[in-house]
């Protein structure tokens, strides 16, 4: 059986620290024996005590320190304990790290990744469950990625650092304990491959089926949920749904997302965040502009409710995107024409 996502991330960090003596990993409560709030950094400080640092509770300051290391030609990976708190580092990301790549009139490499455990469904309540990714969309010089069970995190993190641009890596907390997919196999019905020159987009489909009734595009955190919806749709409703999971959300990888969407002519984009200024809305805008002639239905977006995220499980479910919401959206889009 393939490893768990948290192990894949942990191994990725081990490998990167081993490969790159200029890399520092820093964040709150990272060092052993605690090893980080979600145990992603377990074992790192024992091997590299000088380069794996537990910091004070200072999200802005930590990202600033990482920006300083990057400015000095080093590499840095920061862990923000809960993505909600990346709000406290917004200035460093918006006004320093991303700006510095260009505002001095020449390209300044900034090898910096900020990892953000994100999302709900764990009962952590209104300030520890949000998906603030959308607030980082459209910032020049800043890339936004999300962990998925299809993308190896060593490749993702090394690729992000190699761009010389700062990036955010959102990690849906429900993924940590789930398993990575391996060898192109999802289950007995579905297969996956990684498409595009940089293998950035995971494409999940029924065997070699090229033609789908609908394409479902989701960030990595919703990937397993999207796959289970696609399975239900196939078995219960006889709807063939292809799932696309890009690793890099921003800048948008339209070259790899648009062709399958054009073939199906119908697309649903699901995100766990609330609606309003989202990645999905940006994707919808591009699809409408570029594929207007080949669309059979308007792009359909699925979001969580416009609400704070309650703590109690039965209440949380009423707010966050559920499989049934995605299922329903696909059915409506497919039957609507």
């Amino acid at each position: 059986m393939a490893e768990r996502v948290v192990e894949n991330l942990n191994q990725a960090l081990h490998a990167l620290l081993a490969d790159d003596p200029a890399l520092t990993v820093l964040g709150e409560d990272l060092v052993d024996p605690y090893g980080g709030a979600f145990k992603v950094t377990r074992g790192l400080s024992a091997r590299w005590p000088e380069r794996v640092l537990s910091t004070p509770l200072s999200e802005g300051g930590i990202v600033g320190v990482a920006g300083g290391l990057a400015l000095a030609g080093q590499s840095a990976i920061v862990e923000i304990m809960f993505s909600d708190f990346v709000a406290l580092a917004f200035d460093q990301l918006l006004n320093f790290a991303s700006k510095s790549t260009a505002m001095y009139g020449r390209r300044v490499p900034m090898r910096l990744v900020v990892r953000c455990p994100t999302g709900g469904n764990r009962g952590y309540g209104p300030t520890h469950s949000q998906s603030p990714l959308k607030h980082f969309i459209g910032i020049p010089g800043l890339s936004v990625h999300e962990v998925s069970p299809f993308h190896d995190n060593r490749t993702v993190l090394a690729g992000m650092l190699a761009t010389g641009r700062p990036g955010l890596l959102f990690e849906d907390k429900v993924l940590y304990t789930t398993r990575m997919y391996a060898d192109g196999v999802v289950d007995e019905l579905f297969r996956y491959d990684l498409i595009g020159p940089d293998a950035d987009v995971a494409r999940i489909r029924v065997d070699e089926e090229e033609q789908a009734d609908c394409v479902l595009v989701v960030p990595g955190g919703l990937a397993a949920r999207a796959v289970s919806v696609a399975r239900e749709l196939l078995l219960r409703d006889d709807i063939v749904c292809q799932v696309l999971v890009p690793s890099r959300l921003w800048p948008l990888d339209s070259d790899n997302l648009l062709p399958p969407i054009a073939r199906a002519g119908r697309v649903v984009v699901a995100e766990e965040s609330t609606a309003g200024g989202t990645w999905g809305a940006e994707l919808a805008q591009v699809v409408h502009r570029r594929l207007w002639g080949s669309l059979r239905a308007p792009v359909r977006l699925v979001h969580s409710a416009d609400s704070v995220i309650p703590t109690a499980a039965h209440l949380e479910r009423t707010v966050l995107v559920q499989d049934t919401d995605i299922h329903q959206a696909v059915k409506e889009v497919v039957s609507g024409d």
Binding site: I62, G64, A72, N95, F96
Partner: peptide, 23 residues
């Protein structure tokens, strides 16, 4: 030499640079 226009923002960045220099 680096300057930027957001007050106080450079202090942690300089701390990061100082960490690098120290090492």
């Amino acid at each position: 030499y680096l300057s930027t226009g957001v007050q106080g923002e450079s202090a942690p960045v300089a701390a990061g640079v100082a960490l690098h220099l120290k090492r």
